[in-house]
């Protein structure tokens, strides 16, 4: 009797979970292990703004009950960080000094918030939004009717902003080049969208006009707890400051794996990397496009989920190419409000 194949999935987001489920269905005898740095089982990141509506029980965010993992024999390893992948030996090393052998590996580790180097030193004064605990911390720091400053304002941040406005907070967006990321907007259309933001209730400050953000500082006595200082010397005050400068692939642990990397893991349309046992899906990978002869990132939960499923199918014997399924263009609705396809998840 041969030992069952061991499929390892790194990441427990939309891509990773879709992949794990597909692997289980298509290869019933195999072992499926999902490894994640998160302490929580899979929850939908897009649901996180609900924290600001007072929903603070993480159990209400979780997509699957605990039995799902047991019933599907998906070994869910949480609070576990992969520090190295050895593509030749097909092993990966966990930070706590355990080695795990895999037959196939799917990297679906996603992306983490991008922080411009010049602002990195001010990070302790900012509130992140990557994990459940970050959302709780931000909500805890925000007084009733408080004022939130969104730096940049990518689609994740603007989505949060919509909720914050709805709940009654004051929200300022410091618009700069990452605003609306990952949507690519023509320069001439940009004022329309900025105007739309204002129509939606955001207070918009033109960061570029003020010489870009220079620093984030604690507020002085008698003032709000935080201030954002611009290079022109002006500053604005708020209760919390949140960076939304887009995201960067989370792939440090792949640097020694031997697979090709540019900004993300480079994969064929089959989602296979340059190692035949290793695939990638989601925000962590750049997919080769035969049409325009370059690698593309694809975002949005529908795309990401489709990638997870495709990678799992190809790992288990299919040979199908990636076809994006989601339109990524930003639109203005008839009433002048912004609509991002990435917000359509309800």
């Amino acid at each position: 009797m041969s030992t069952p194949r061991h499929h390892v999935v790194i990441g427990s987001g939309v891509a990773g979970n879709q992949a794990a489920e597909t692997l289980r269905q298509r290869d019933p005898e195999s072992r499926v292990t999902m490894i994640t740095v998160s302490k929580l089982p899979f929850f939908n990141r897009y649901d996180l703004p609900r924290v600001f509506r007072g929903e603070r029980d993480w159990r209400k965010f979780v997509i699957y009950p605990a039995e799902y993992y047991l019933d599907n024999r998906i070994a869910l390893r949480r609070a576990t960080k992969v520090v190295n992948v050895d593509g030749a030996r097909r092993t990966l090393t966990l930070e706590h000094n355990e080695t795990v052998r895999f037959d196939t590996l799917l990297v679906a580790s996603g992306a983490s918030a991008y922080m411009p180097a010049e602002l990195a030193e001010y990070q302790p004064l900012m509130h992140g939004f990557g994990a459940f605990r970050d959302a709780i911390a931000a909500a805890d720091a925000l007084p009733k009717d408080g004022h939130v400053i969104l730096m940049g304002g990518d689609t994740i941040g603007l989505d949060l902003g919509r909720t914050l406005l709805d709940v009654g907070y004051r929200v300022t967006v410091i618009a700069e080049k990452h605003t609306f990321w990952p949507h690519e907007i023509k320069a001439e259309e940009r004022p329309l969208y900025i105007e739309a933001l204002a129509k939606m209730g955001f207070e918009v400050i033109d960061g570029h006009a003020r010489g870009e953000i220079a620093a984030v500082r604690a507020g002085a006595p008698g003032l709000a707890p935080r201030r954002v200082v611009f290079h022109d010397g002006s500053e604005i005050h708020g209760d919390i400051v949140m960076p939304f400068f887009g995201v960067a692939p989370a792939l440090d642990f792949m640097l020694g794996s031997g697979v090709d990397i540019e900004r993300g893991l480079l994969v064929q349309p089959s989602l296979r990397t340059t190692n035949e046992a290793i695939y990638a899906a989601g925000d962590v990978c750049q997919i080769w496009s035969d049409a325009d002869k370059r690698y593309h990132f694809y975002h949005g939960w529908k795309n990401v989920r489709a990638m997870g499923e495709l990678a799992a199918r190809n790992i288990t014997g299919a040979d199908e190419p990636w076809v994006p399924i989601q339109d990524e263009s930003l639109q203005l609705s008839a009433d002048g409000r912004i609509r991002s396809p990435f917000w359509e998840y309800a």
Partner: peptide
């Protein structure tokens, strides 16, 4: 550690 020899490998969902 060999695979599965760490507590974290056994914590239930």
């Amino acid at each position: 550690l060999a695979e599965g020899a760490h507590v974290s490998a056994h914590i239930l969902p």
